[in-house]
Amino acid sequence: MAQDSGFREGMGIALRLGVELIVATFIGVMMGYALDKFFDTRPWFLVLGVLFGGAAGSLNVYRIATASLPGDVKDPLDLQKNNKKQKDR
């Protein structure tokens, strides 16, 4: 049963990440596009929107990844270092 729930959680995270990244970027682009239409300032808000949207998407993915880490590790980068150390050994 424990193994089963691990699989379910893993699938959940895997299916979440991609959509999260794309949707945030898409929202940023749409907001930038709408603001450009409104203020007639093409393409500046669009550029800003892509950047902010991409940042929001990456941040969301980072948060999901951090939340799904095993208990004592707080930062994904630490996990990477730990793995490296274990490999070096």
Partner: peptide, 16 residues
């Protein structure tokens, strides 16, 4: 950034 990720929530929830 936070506003965008807030608005992205219902959309990603439904689109997924």
């Amino acid at each position: 950034i936070e506003v965008i990720s807030m608005i992205a929530r219902p959309i990603s929830l439904s689109v997924r």
